[in-house]
Write a protein that binds this DNA or RNA. Structure first.
Lengths: 250, 250
DNA sequence: CTGTTTCTAGACCATATGGCCTAGATTGCC
DNA sequence: GGCAATCTAGGCCATATGGTCTAGAAACAG
């Protein structure tokens, strides 16, 4: 572990050496613990050439400071009372000022990591990690990259894959009644899931309305439902369409 | 870049040295290009102490070999004709044999990376990456971790955040017509999104059917739709319910 | 107190939807 | 050839749904 971090530190230094021509990234630190705050501030000022333009001990103060200073980077402690860090990050992202936020916390809880990355954090660092790791992360994020240490990255992906697996189990079920539909029935159902009436379906498919009704009735029987709405719901809940879209809760 | 890789190489070696008491991980290689296949095989046999138990030049052959040999690791080229690598990975995951698959490809297309990780790949390596990187990745994955090189990881997260941002924009929109519904109307719509008829809604809410109709008509006007199905679709597409669920397309 | 909103409920009517049947044309398989 | 599946289409009928009105009761804000 220590060797690993020393390696990372040397990388970071290499990176920074190569970037000296660029302007120093301006940073705002947010941590409700004042001790930590000044500790990190000192660390950054000594170990790097970044510019800590402001610090805040609460999320709301932080946000007004961000509006005022427009820093490149915000280092945000996630574990804060009052307004929590995740919400704060979400708000900052919503402002759309191009500010890049790095989450800072003591826990490597995969759920926290997942949520932070989801709402737009550009990095996630543990307080227990060596200072070099922090500097390196800021470096990467300041250069437009998104940085998650390998250990956390691994945990993130485990969580990501697990939550996705639970989803697909439902979809990939062999008992999916949608598989029994004929091609034409699928086409009809497709149009139904767009909220189109029978008349509309008939026009789109160049068939008579009664034919549509026949197809629809067959669909009902195959899907074991009683009406259009239920058929559409069955289709949507069992991955008929919209497999493209992404919907994840915060 | 070269220095970076040299560092990674040394890490890998350290890791392996510390793991000599463990049994050698058994690997199956899959690549439709025979030249690549033997090249990688040689590389692994010389540069590591992993055991390449079999190779395949097609996904279907690979899958039967996997069933036979039950390797710890599968190194899968994604760009193959016939059955493509992603589908193959999905099938391997479905078998649920505990086999851990690493995707191998020439492209760092974020969509490819995203899809690979989503279906359960435990790693993703570019062919252009140095051999040490490959060995290190296998090491990590063999040790139960999920490994994505920092560069690819960054691209993955950009894609991840972007696709998620597009989703939330729709939901967090202030123009969301659902916000204009009264509480009672929401209750009615809630029941409609479960495929319940007016009669059923009336019974559930202990009101008359005509009252339900009144509410429904008001809902239609507020949501600017013409029928039940469209109202349900509007509700589902605009985050009325089911904000919990995760739906991601392959 | 008065106006507004919400929830309730009815009347009336038109049309869309759903249930159940028959049946011809086409295609592909045994 | 003959059977099965699919797509097509119509008839007939019952009911669910949608459109438009009116209207009373309760809650609430100004």
């Amino acid at each position: 572990m220590t060797k690993e971090l020393k390696n990372k530190k040397s990388w970071g230094e290499q990176m920074r050496r190569g970037l000296e021509f660029k302007k120093k990234a301006r940073i705002i630190l947010v941590d409700d613990n004042y001790e930590h705050l000044s500790g990190i501030k000192e660390l950054i000022e000594i170990e790097s050439d970044f510019d800590v333009v402001a610090t805040a001990t609460s999320a709301s103060v932080a946000i007004s400071l961000i509006k005022k200073y427009r820093p490149e980077i915000v280092l945000m402690d996630i574990n804060m009372p009052e307004k929590d860090g995740l919400t704060a990050i979400a708000e900052i992202e919503k402002l759309d000022l191009g500010v890049r936020t790095i989450a800072l916390t003591g826990y490597d809880d995969p759920d926290l990591i997942f949520r932070a990355m989801k709402i737009g954090a550009k990095g996630y660092i543990l307080k227990t990690m060596a200072s070099a790791q922090l500097i390196y992360a800021i470096d990467e994020v300041a250069n437009g990259k998104i940085y998650l240490p390998a250990t956390l990255s691994s945990r993130f992906f485990e969580y990501f894959q697990k939550s996705f697996k639970e989803e697909t189990q439902v979809i990939s079920d062999e008992e999916n009644l949608l598989n029994y539909l004929t091609q034409r029935e699928e086409e009809v159902l497709d149009l139904l899931t767009q909220g189109i009436t029978y008349k509309g379906v008939a026009q789109k498919l160049f068939i008579s309305e009664t034919t549509v009704k026949t197809h629809v009735n067959n669909i009902f029987q195959k899907l074991q439902v009683n009406d259009r709405t239920q058929a559409v719901l069955y289709a949507l809940n069992n991955g008929f369409l919209n497999r493209r879209k992404v919907k994840i809760a915060i």
